[in-house]
Design a protein around this nucleic acid. Structure first.
Length: 271
DNA sequence: CGCGAGACCTGATAGC
DNA sequence: TGCTATCAGGTCTCGC
């Protein structure tokens, strides 16, 4: 998404912005956001974890988080209005950047560079960056008793992983989601780290994973969906051992696992 | 302080 | 058919 935005909106001027007043603005008024966007030129597009940042010539930054169901579209202003449209930014090339989000769990607001830095500092390392080493991950796991799945979803440990990639990584490393983080052995941590790096890299090249709602800027689904090994494959055979994939609840999230490949921790009766 | 459950929303779908 | 219950890509808050 960042790459597409960079190609399409850098150097474009936002002529007019329609902003809906919703909780996605995090307390900012629609009027303030509109004023901070209109007549500004997009200088660059950055990403950190699941946040997108459109840097503007004013020094302001447009923060976008897509939450569960948020989508960014580049459309013709004459195209029919989308349901749950939160932002429609008319660009100087007569196209319109829209943010639609029917559940409204996303985020949309103008922030300063200082706020961006503070936000970025609260996130863990990028999975494809140099800080995401096996020593780092093993160090985090060693001092935590939470479920390994909860820690991988925690954006302060590593930035950008969600439910799909965590389930895929745990399956690839043959680690059960309900293992306590501090019980993982060194080789398991290394397998997990390698799986995360590979899965994220592959998915970016395939333009993302569409599970239900995700679409790219042009409305096309991501190409990674066909490559998922476990996620949402309950009752279908494990692609490693043939046993049926189970759907369980772990760390409060629906989780797809192969109980034959991903051995549950001792004394975990329920799932 | 860390952990885990519940809350926040709307919509799709399964089951009765 | 139509109602109800459940579940969904995320993250925050609160109680323990």
């Amino acid at each position: 998404m960042r790459r597409d935005l960079e190609r399409e909106v850098v150097s474009r001027r936002i002529e007019r912005a329609h902003v809906a007043q919703t909780r996605m603005l995090g307390g900012q008024t629609a009027e303030e956001l509109r004023e901070r966007l209109e007549r500004r030129v997009v200088i660059s597009v950055a990403r950190r974890g699941k946040f997108l940042f459109l840097h503007l010539d004013s020094g302001d930054v447009l923060l976008v988080h897509r939450g569960m169901t948020g989508n960014l579209f580049l459309k013709d202003p004459a195209d029919p209005p989308d349901a749950h449209l939160h932002l429609a930014a008319r660009l100087d090339d007569a196209r319109e950047l829209r943010l639609c989000d029917h559940r409204g769990f996303g985020e949309l607001r103008a922030i300063s560079l200082t706020e961006l830095d503070a936000l970025s500092a609260r996130l863990g390392p990028e999975p494809l960056g140099p800080e995401f080493t096996v020593d780092y991950l093993a160090g985090q796991f060693a001092r935590r008793t939470a479920l390994v799945k909860a820690l991988l979803l925690n954006q302060a440990i590593v930035a950008g992983l969600g439910n799909i990639y965590v389930d895929e990584a745990l399956w690839a490393a043959q680690v059960h989601p309900e293992r306590r983080a501090n019980t993982l052995r060194g080789p398991e941590v290394e397998l997990l780290r390698k799986a995360i790096v590979r899965l994220i890299g592959e998915s970016v090249e395939r333009r993302g994973t569409t599970f239900s709602d995700y679409k790219d800027l042009y409305g096309n689904p991501g190409g990674n969906s066909a490559h998922l090994q476990v996620f949402h494959r309950a009752k279908q055979p494990c692609l490693r051992c043939g046993e049926p994939i189970q759907h369980v609840r772990a760390a409060g999230r629906g989780s797809s696992v192969c109980l034959a490949c991903q051995r549950p921790p001792a004394g975990n009766g329920a799932s």
